Amino acid sequence: MYNTVVDKHIRITEEPSNYDKLDEMETLDIVANINNEDKKVAEAVECVLPIVAKVVDETAARFEKGGRLFYIGAGTSGRLGILDASEIPPTFGMPYDKVIGLIAGGDNAIRKAVENAEDDTEQAWKDLLEYDINSNDVLVGIAASGTTPYVLGGIADAKQHGLLTVGITNNPGSPLAQASDIPIEVNVGPEFLTGSTRMKSGTSQKMVLNMISTGVMIRIGRVKGNKMVNMQLSNIKLIDRGTRYIMEETGLDYEAAEKALIKYGSVKLAIDALK
């Protein structure tokens, strides 16, 4: 179990902004300066790509054994994990219980902050136990500061139970980085609005999560070429997209491709049957 201690490491995410007198700036200058800071995010993420690739491969290997991917976080970090997890079923046709996002304070915290929820070091593991979590699973803790007790407690308990643990943080050398089997430390520098980690830090987290989940889905065969051949056909737009995928792969006209898609229920099944 993680014990809360006074953390004395340098918190880059809390350092003063490189800009001052924001309230006196012209509006165009505000948005231009935010954009200038955002340009730094992709470069910071580029520095950790080999580590992200390692997480993808390790996670895919566990998926082949029946494992799952869990995200835990508080506030913006928790919401980003839930956002990424929620897109996996419609995009890749995976069950909803294969990539799961959990937030400190439960589902109510998705829209409204739940007081003191992130300070509970024991709650994350309690939340995870509801999913019969086991050593084949992967736990990704997300915390810009790298000090969130909810995340640190979950990572500590997961390690004790043999899970692979990954920490995504924007403070190199933070407690989360030190506690995780694989730390992903994305140094985006101080925020435009001092301490507002929903900005560059949050953007970098979303980029890394996109890479992890999309990379895993590609590695386990949920993508063909560059197409989402296992996507859920939940609306007219997606049926049209799937129909066009089949047309490209088989040479059928639109009407025949659409009939095949409806008959087989997925792009992949239709293409496999037609070929």
Rank of each mutant, 00 (worst) to 15 (best):
D7F: 06
K8D: 09
H9F: 14
S17R: 10
K21P: 00
L22E: 09
E24M: 12
E24F: 09
E26N: 10
T27I: 05
T27C: 01
L28D: 02
I34H: 00
I34N: 00
K39P: 00
K40Y: 01
V41P: 10
A42C: 12
A44P: 13
V45Q: 03
V48Y: 07
V48C: 06
V48D: 05
L49C: 00
P50A: 11
V56C: 06
D57L: 10
E58G: 00
T59R: 02
T59L: 04
R62L: 11
K65A: 02
G67D: 02
R68L: 03
R68Q: 05
F70V: 01
I72G: 01
I72P: 01
I72S: 03
T76E: 04
R79N: 03
R79F: 00
L80T: 02
A85G: 06
I88H: 00
M94K: 10
M94S: 15
M94A: 15
Y96T: 06
D97Q: 08
G101S: 02
G105A: 06
G106Y: 05
G106C: 08
D107R: 03
V114H: 04
N116H: 12
D120T: 01
A124E: 07
L128F: 13
Y131T: 03
I133L: 01
N134W: 05
L139R: 04
V140A: 02
G141M: 00
I142Q: 03
T148W: 05
P149E: 12
P149T: 08
Y150K: 11
V151Q: 05
L152M: 11
G153N: 02
G153L: 02
G153E: 04
G154N: 01
I155W: 04
A156Y: 04
K159H: 03
K159F: 03
Q160C: 07
Q160H: 07
G162A: 00
L163P: 01
L164W: 06
V166Y: 03
G167Y: 08
A177K: 07
Q178I: 12
A179M: 12
I182P: 08
I184S: 04
E191Y: 08
E191K: 07
E191A: 08
T197I: 13
M199W: 08
G202Q: 10
G202T: 10
S204G: 14
V208P: 03
N210A: 07
M211A: 13
G215E: 13
G221P: 03
G221Y: 08
R222Y: 10
V223I: 15
V223G: 08
N226I: 14
M228K: 12
V229A: 10
M231T: 09
Q232C: 12
N235Y: 02
I236E: 14
D240C: 08
G242T: 11
T243Y: 14
E249A: 15
E249T: 08
Y254D: 14
Y254E: 15
A256V: 04
K259D: 14
I262S: 11
K263Y: 09
S266T: 14
V267P: 12
K268S: 09
A270R: 05
I271F: 12
